[in-house]
Design a protein around this nucleic acid. Sequence first.
DNA 1: GGGTTGTTTGGAACAGTTCCAAACTATTGA
DNA 2: TCAATAGTTTGGAACTGTTCCAAACAACCC
Lengths: 150, 150
Amino acid sequence: MNTPLDTSRDRPFSQTLRRLKDAGLRPTRQRLALGKLLFDAGDRHVTAEQLHAEAGSKGIKVSLATIYNTLNQFTESGLMREVVVAPGRSYYDTNTEDHHHFFYEDDGSLKDIPHDAIALSAMPDAPEDAEVARVDVIVRLCRAVDNQSQ
Amino acid sequence: MNTPLDTSRDRPFSQTLRRLKDAGLRPTRQRLALGKLLFDAGDRHVTAEQLHAEAGSKGIKVSLATIYNTLNQFTESGLMREVVVAPGRSYYDTNTEDHHHFFYEDDGSLKDIPHDAIALSAMPDAPEDAEVARVDVIVRLCRAVDNQSQ
DNA sequence: GGGTTGTTTGGAACAGTTCCAAACTATTGA
DNA sequence: TCAATAGTTTGGAACTGTTCCAAACAACCC
């Protein structure tokens, strides 16, 4: 009952399906399920372990190795981005636009900084024979202990 | 033959000795040697493995565990700073001033960005109940492939 | 359907870091 | 100067996060 071009009432997986196809990745059960978790809920920041736990808790059976494979493939094909904020674990971000991050040191969570809320006024020249691949700004936050002092 | 207050011709270790004392760390053979490597050569960025190799190649016998202990203690007492740029390894920086970094993705090396070469014009408000602990800017560089195109 | 190729999987392997208990060393005070 | 004490170092085991591997499996194409 859908016209062929109707995208307004996609079946559950078609958004992810499209992304996978465009990226040249086979739409397997695992990739579809993980893609749905990742892309259907707005901007997300996950570690491999977190995603694995989340999938498990929703009854999706995926091995940890596949989680790593998938996150890396998604990143390589530009569907996600890696964010380096803490030693010892990698975060993956579903927002691939040019943007920066708040990092809560207390609980290890990440939050996008609205694009227009930050700007670099002076940019250093890249040294000779090198070019800027990307600029990352990380604003590290800690829980305010006391709002009254000062 | 030195006057007690003469600091102009320090013995080899006295600069590091002073730092250790001020930080409340016992000036052991290992800490003095590592401190000398780290602080006598201007601003440095090292990983534990690198420092271990460097010490080894200079005939300083220190275990890797001690390298880690020392870098962590130096960092806790404000003598150094940790810089997070790549997943899987920690860099330690002898420059504790407020500054940012170039990171060469090709060879994993770090370089300070001159303090006045970069500036954040707009700073996002920290969310309620959190405060900014630090802002890190990392300019990721890759080797320019070709200077002629464009 | 059947062959081909790409994917998933559990477990082993790895890298970087921390932990541990025993040996050692700087410091302190008598 | 020496002994007692408290802090430090050490090798190796343990741990964490990630990658590798070969076998089983699933998607794709004709």
